[in-house]
Amino acid sequence: MTTTVVAGNPKPGSRTLDAANRLAESLTGSAPDHIVDVIELGPGLLGWGDAKVKAAVETVASSDLVVFASPTFKATYTGVLKLFLDQFATGDGLRDVTAVPLMLGAGPAHAMAPDLLLKPVLVELGAVCPLPGLYLIDSTYTEDTRISDYTERWRSALPVKGSGS
């Protein structure tokens, strides 16, 4: 199974990226095969045809499992993640991809944001989202048990793809 992490934080190497890597590893038992720290794609996100962006889109679209992560900005996912998701064809850009929406925030007020805001976009792009989204408090996710609790509860709902996965 090919696993990818997509982090849509305006800061490179963010806590969002770290949390997504931790979740992917918890769900699969190994580090993700690919990491797309969207902000590192730079101004190529603002148009069409950029080679780095195209390669990142192809990597994500050919993955079996993708953790899509964003901090909570103005009660939703970031604009930089939206710019990246706009690069995928509606309906089948994420066909055959199992997606897990993950969002981080300062407090519990937006705990439903992964399911209410990020998951519908992923489904619109053709992804399958068999698990509920996960919302983490950005100041405590490294100390609390939310990722391991989520994995224990939901890992069995992930489809098993390919031999040796």
Rank of each mutant, 00 (worst) to 15 (best):
G93D: 06
K119F: 05
M103L: 03
L23A: 08
A89V: 08
S148M: 08
V128M: 13
G49Y: 02
F68E: 04
L65A: 02
A56H: 05
A157G: 10
D64G: 09
L85Q: 10
G107F: 10
T90W: 13
V60Y: 04
M112I: 09
M1T: 15
P12I: 12
R95H: 14
E152V: 11
G164Y: 05
S165Q: 13
P132N: 04
V67Y: 11
D64Q: 04
T16H: 15
S163P: 15
G13N: 12
N9H: 14
M103S: 02
A99C: 01
D18Q: 15
K82E: 12
P159C: 05
T98C: 00
K161S: 13
N21Q: 15
D138M: 12
F73M: 08
G164H: 11
V67T: 03
L118A: 01
G93S: 09
T142H: 09
H110C: 10
S26A: 15
K82I: 04
G44T: 04
L81H: 08
G93A: 07
K74A: 11
G107Y: 12
G133T: 05
V38N: 05
G164D: 03
T2M: 12
R22M: 14
S165T: 14
V57F: 04
D37V: 09
A99Y: 00
E58V: 03
V53E: 06
F84W: 05
Q87E: 04
F88P: 06
V100T: 00
D144C: 05
L118W: 01
Q87N: 02
